[in-house]
Simulated scan of single mutants.
Amino acid sequence: MARRLDRINRLLDGVTRNRREIVTPEGVMLEVDIANHGERLVAFMVDFLFWLLATSLLFLVLGLTLLHGVTGSVTITIVLFLSFLLRNLYFIHFELQSQGATPGKRLVNLKVIDRSGGPLLPGAIVARNLTREVEIFLPLGLFFSVPTLAEGGFWMALSYFGWAAGLSALPFFNRDHLRAGDLIAGTMVISVQRRPLLAELAQAESRYVFSRKQLDAYGAFELQVLEELLRRPSSPDTHGMQQEVCGKICRKIGWPEPVPEAEALAFLKAFYTAERAHLEREQQFGRYRADKHEAPSTGR
């Protein structure tokens, strides 16, 4: 199944998304899509921006009230402590309350899960987020605090920067894109695309009627490709792909008249409904076709 979905992703996108099979403690096999590096970076930058805005607002309020007249060293200590506290509370709170999704992750449809398929425990969430301090914020804080012009300061700053860069690059060196926090906490970040139910895709369009010969042109694999395309969120790229696929189907089945661009989605939904019903009916009689290159098999 995972290999078939990889073929679909390669056909639609030209790339293969990393897919893993996880067996839950109850013995249920789940297939998940591993979040790629770009998605995780975008999610982190969005969360970092939200945290920065919240921190700036807090410091503005404190500066006008409690910190007024406090000495510089004390102010810096308070600022660093509150930054650490707010930063970790932000990630921990949202991942606890939103089942492993911060606002940034929700924006790009990502989610933190337990690698063994079990429930996402609070201890794992705390561990993976506290580890981020050692991965990124602690070495970067030390890097910016080193006087590089002093004797030996340059090499010390470089070592701190290398510390942060090395740990940040860890997801590029394992197949599940795990950072140090994921390795310690036993978690992973997956992509959870919002998909409509099959029943929503199978709404028939009565103005499009297909013959048995036309429906015999495709098999189960092509049907699944079409299903994945219809499930995709609406976007200019998706619309362009729908029109391209619509044209290919029309040429393949010999559709007698051109389908207007505005009707491409309706045509694809109607063809999906008819093709799915046709293949299910054929399978009931022992005739199964894996894809368009394979002749229908007959039952014994």
Rank of each mutant, 00 (worst) to 15 (best):
M1Y: 06
D6Y: 02
L11E: 05
L12P: 03
G14N: 09
N18K: 13
R19F: 05
E31C: 06
A43V: 08
V46Q: 03
D47G: 08
D47S: 13
L49Y: 06
F59R: 07
L66C: 08
L67M: 15
G69E: 11
V70I: 15
I92H: 01
F94N: 03
Q97K: 13
G100Y: 01
R106K: 12
P119L: 11
E135C: 09
E135V: 15
L138C: 07
L142N: 07
P147Q: 15
A150V: 09
L158C: 10
L158A: 14
Y160E: 00
Y160G: 00
F161W: 06
W163F: 04
A164G: 02
L167P: 01
F172I: 08
H177T: 03
D182C: 05
L183F: 12
S191E: 05
R194Q: 09
L197N: 11
L197W: 05
A202V: 03
A202M: 12
S211P: 02
S211R: 11
K213M: 07
L215A: 08
A220Q: 12
A220R: 11
A220C: 02
E227L: 10
L229Q: 06
S235F: 15
D237I: 11
H239T: 10
Q242E: 14
I249N: 00
A264V: 14
A266G: 05
F267H: 01
L268F: 02
K269F: 01
A270L: 02
Y272A: 01
A274S: 15
E275W: 04
E280R: 07
Q283G: 06
Q284S: 08
G286Y: 05
R287T: 13
R289D: 01
E294T: 15
A295N: 07
R300T: 15
R300K: 13
